[in-house]
């Protein structure tokens, strides 16, 4: 009974994760500039991938596999914001333009920075 419940829940999480991944991809195509696209890719992408891994953990019904899947989710949650942040920072320093309707930009107040690590 409990095992069946885990299977049903796993199936729901699997479809939800796949749907979030698809929405992240649609967002990356539809949003107007790199910085807004990063929002879609980092949040919806991480949740999509994480939900699929959680589904694997539930469906496998094996403690060793579940622990590995949960560690995979933790890894994903820890690394996705780092890569999004690095990409946003690199794009800003390289001078990639913001969308013309950006309502406020405090970064432009700062004088141009020279990229470190050179």
């Amino acid at each position: 009974m409990i095992a069946d419940l885990a299977l049903y829940l796993g199936g729901v999480l699997l479809v939800a994760g796949a749907a979030f991944s698809l929405l992240a991809a649609i967002g990356v195509v539809r949003l107007p500039d790199l910085y807004t696209r990063l929002h879609a890719a980092s949040k919806a992408g991480a949740v999509g991938g994480g939900l699929v891994l959680l589904a694997v953990a539930l469906v496998s019904q094996d403690a060793a596999v579940s622990i590995r899947a949960v560690i995979g989710v933790l890894f994903l949650i820890m690394t996705t914001p780092v890569s999004a942040h690095l990409l946003a920072r690199a794009a800003y320093i390289a001078g990639y333009p913001f969308w013309s309707n950006t309502v406020q930009n405090d970064l432009e107040v700062e004088p141009n920075k020279i990229p470190p690590h050179q």
Binding site: A18, A41, G45, A46, T80, L87, A91
Partner: peptide
């Protein structure tokens, strides 16, 4: 940057 972002998303989707 856009292409790198899309590639990053693709690896997450491929993982899923």
């Amino acid at each position: 940057g856009d292409r790198v972002l899309a590639l990053d998303l693709m690896t997450v989707v491929a993982m899923g």
